[in-house]
Design a protein around this nucleic acid. Structure first.
Lengths: 152, 152
DNA sequence: TTAAAATAAATTGCACACAATTCAATAATA
DNA sequence: TATTATTGAATTGTGTGCAATTTATTTTAA
């Protein structure tokens, strides 16, 4: 049975958590980079497309909330994807402050070409299925906590 | 009892893991940003200092391996820290290709001022101690796997 | 109903992050 | 030993990522 941790121990571990999180995210993104280059996308562009493939059209604001990016990052990425011909950006007539992001036909088609991208991780993540599930759940729980704090 | 997952399920989950990892890392770094600004450091600069505080002087190459950064990122960061007066950079006489990174007195002193930085996470990570331990272990296991693959 | 506040994007400036290349020093080998 | 290969750091160019500010639009409230 593990001893009950004091506050200092929790803090120290929190600090230690930070680094592997940072390093692991970078390394996993790096694994995706090469296969993504083959279909002409960066990781950030890919994530935008994944969200749009899953949820369909939405405002830039909504997209930014889902992807944890503000307009400072997102606007240039979306303009690039528009230049590539994968998305369309247009002000909404109901409220001209909002920009609606829509997939073009080519954007929809790209989904198939990207379908083998997840295989990039094959043989690169040495975790069991159960460990991956646990990791996935803990990360999402942590994210939820951070979101909760934000909306207060 | 969970059913045995097929390969496709593992791949799909791997892909899904990628995003919360990316998002969570960004959000946690964001939490550190404000308290770090008070002692005049960015997150990357802080991680460099943490490594040097823990392990002492080492070459830029060694530092880069520990922190998962190449010279393209690390050289400018180290030059900045040198300008701040926290580290010293000098070519090693034994082998002039290597640059040895050493803490200055001010660099050592900064450690105390930074001692309360981990408290930034207090009230921001809604995970139990055990969950944090599990998350920490899984991330490190994933990192080890990635490293292993690299050295092959 | 108009002035003030709020809101969504866009812009600006700074700091990474990394691939690719260059440069200088050292090691390997013909 | 002279040539080639390798290695560590530095440089260059592109792409985020974000805080702070600006702009245009809409909402709120006086």
């Amino acid at each position: 049975m593990a001893k009950s941790p004091n506050k200092l121990e929790v803090l120290k571990l929190g600090n230690q958590l930070c680094f592997p999180l940072y390093a692991c995210a970078k390394e996993v993104i790096k694994i995706y980079r090469k296969p993504l280059a083959k279909i002409g996308l960066t990781y950030t562009q890919y994530i935008v497309m994944v969200i749009l493939w899953e949820f369909g059209e939405m405002s830039e604001k909504e997209l930014g909330e889902k992807i944890y990016l503000d307009s400072g990052t997102l606007t240039p990425v979306l303009k690039k994807l528009e230049k590539f011909g994968f998305v369309k950006r247009q002000r909404m007539t109901e409220d001209e402050r909002f920009v609606k992001i829509t997939l073009t036909d080519n954007g929809v088609k790209l989904r198939e070409k990207a379908s083998n991208i997840p295989q990039a991780l094959e043989g690169n993540i040495y975790l069991s299925y159960d460990e991956m599930i646990t990791l996935y759940n803990l990360l999402n729980k942590a994210l939820e906590g951070i979101n909760e704090r934000k909306t207060q």
